[in-house]
């Protein structure tokens, strides 16, 4: 007897949207709603024991973090269903495009881009004040909702709970690197991100101080030669 595969029943395998580093993303119609299914599959390059542990850990924490972020009033996809056997999360499809795509397409005017950056800072501040660390803050993990233009965060696969300024600082540092490496042509957008963060965070000074130390910690900053 072959095992029942819910993804196959939904016809998901024909609708692969993306294969990211975390897993496969399918787009299906689930309970008549456009749904994104994120499936974590076995990583062959990892030791099976280590892989099983990491997959389970990230699956659980992603589902929990999505819920927590929602409670904090951040736009995130709503969870419709979780399948702990196949490590699948069924969630709302956010209509719109990623911030990365928007910046690359040139869909955003410089003023609009600055507004979006400020909004990113505000959202991250809200997340951090609530004690949640995203863990993979890049512009590909941020969506601009169609119509309203509101900013939504996706991919909480590496997120965790923490109130430490260290974790918040590292989170910001990851975001800064993402901005510098992918969007350096779009001007100094990260300044606007920090600006948005400063205006909305309750712990701005301590987080910023720690962020500065984390930044200084980056290796070979000067790259002599």
């Amino acid at each position: 007897m072959t095992e029942y595969d819910p993804l196959e029943a939904l016809g998901a395998y024909d609708k692969l949207v993306a294969q990211g580093a975390e897993g496969r993303v399918f787009e299906v119609l689930y309970l008549k709603k456009p749904t994104i299914v994120k499936q974590r599959f076995k990583k062959k390059y990892r030791h099976p024991e280590l892989d099983a542990k990491l997959t389970k850990q990230r699956f659980t924490s992603e589902a929990r973090s999505l819920l927590k972020a929602r409670k904090l009033g951040i736009h995130v996809p709503a969870i419709y269903f979780t399948d702990a056997q196949n490590f699948c999360i069924y969630m709302e499809k956010i209509q719109g495009q990623s911030v990365k795509a928007a910046l690359f397409n040139g869909d955003l005017t410089p003023e609009k881009a600055t507004t979006v950056a400020t909004q990113i800072g505000k959202t991250v501040a809200k997340l951090h004040d609530g004690g949640l660390i995203h863990g993979d803050l890049t512009t590909s993990n941020m969506m601009l909702k169609e119509g309203s233009g509101e900013l939504a965060l996706i991919d909480f696969g590496l997120s965790f709970n923490s109130i430490l300024t260290e974790d918040k600082g590292v989170d910001l540092y990851v975001l800064e690197r993402a901005f510098l490496s992918a969007h350096s042509a779009s001007g100094n957008l990260f300044e606007s991100v920090l600006d948005g963060y400063r205006k909305n965070s309750k712990n701005w000074s301590s987080v910023y101080n720690r962020f500065a130390t984390v930044r200084a910690r980056g290796r070979k900053r000067t790259m002599v030669g």
Binding site: A21, L50, D51, D136
Partner: peptide, 18 residues
């Protein structure tokens, strides 16, 4: 080796996806 290389491959894979 298993631990550190798993980290390296994963981060490379993330960069490739990005």
């Amino acid at each position: 080796q298993e631990t550190i290389f798993a980290m390296l491959v994963e981060i490379t894979e993330r960069a490739m996806a990005h």
